[in-house]
């Protein structure tokens, strides 16, 4: 187990978790989507959220990014309560990178402008500096030549890699990945997952909702299984998949792994 995970254990005077959810509840009308979630993510840790559609994975990521109001509980970002309505949500989101299932690149901006938009507008990086860094990042994913191209001329895998680079361009403390391979053709999934592995190797702190079980097992430090808005079971990735304890976990894994 990594030092990073040890750091969150009580008793050790260490930095607070990058992200901490305390008894988070979120409901849409009568439908309770998150029902008392407790989760702490340490620096450099990669946490995979798994569970059936509607289990609350995406909502959990959206609440963490303050894109959804919570109905109870607290959300802490490096120890600061960001669920306090007095907190400037835009400033919080600027510290978090998010990637969505449908890429959501801006179709009216070329690839380089997509990547540099937040650097220039939110982080006030001068245009030249932002573009230099943008090109550097595009080079790391082999898409430097596409800097001037528009998103609709790129393959799904290329678009999603640009979306990831856009999210990390302003060096967020936390990266949220919401089923980023679900909309991709099978042969394009690999290139996107490879980029996530690279980010992990560089020490990124990542929370990702995913349907890719082998990927979750290989890349995540910890796996969290959600069902009906609650955390049913969590544990170190390999252990989790080798010997799940809860019946519901076993049933879910049997279903997804046989398919």
């Amino acid at each position: 187990m990594s030092d990073a995970v040890d750091a969150v254990r009580p008793g050790r005077a260490a930095e607070p978790p990058v992200l901490e959810l305390q008894q988070v509840r979120c409901a849409f009308g009568d439908h309770v989507v998150l029902d008392g979630i407790d989760l702490a993510v340490a620096r450099h840790e990669v946490v995979a959220l798994i569970g059936a559609s509607g289990s609350g994975k995406s909502t959990l990521l959206r609440t963490a990014n303050l894109l959804e109001h919570i109905d109870d509980g607290r959300i802490l970002l490096t120890g600061e309560d960001v669920s306090d309505p007095r907190v400037d949500a835009d400033r919080v989101r600027a510290r978090i990178g998010a990637v969505f299932q449908q890429y959501n690149l801006f179709p009216h901006l070329n690839v380089l402008d997509n990547v540099t938009l937040a650097m220039r507008l939110v982080h006030r990086v001068p245009k030249g500096e932002a573009e230099r860094r943008g090109r550097e990042l595009l080079a790391t994913i082999g898409l430097e030549a596409k800097a001037g191209a528009f998103p609709d001329t790129l393959s799904g895998g290329q678009q999603q890699r640009v979306a990831i680079v856009r999210a990390i361009a302003s060096e967020p403390e936390l990266l949220l990945l919401d089923e980023i391979t679900s909309a991709l053709d099978p042969e394009l999934v690999g290139e996107v997952l490879a980029l996530v592995r690279t980010l992990k190797a560089q020490g990124a702190t990542i929370v990702m909702a995913t349907h890719e079980m082998p990927f979750a097992r290989d890349v995540a430090d910890r796996v969290v299984f959600l069902d009906g808005g609650r955390i049913v079971e969590e544990g170190p990735a390999r252990e989790f998949f080798r010997s799940p304890r809860e019946e519901r976990t076993k049933a879910f894994l049997a279903r997804v792994l046989s398919g």
Partner: peptide
């Protein structure tokens, strides 16, 4: 709406999102 969502997730405020992402489209 996902365009607005993506812009806000990057930290753009309401006005920036409107001017730079929503209105041009």
């Amino acid at each position: 709406p996902s365009q607005r969502l993506a812009a806000r997730a990057l930290g753009l405020d309401h006005g920036q999102t409107l001017r730079r992402v929503v209105l041009p489209q």
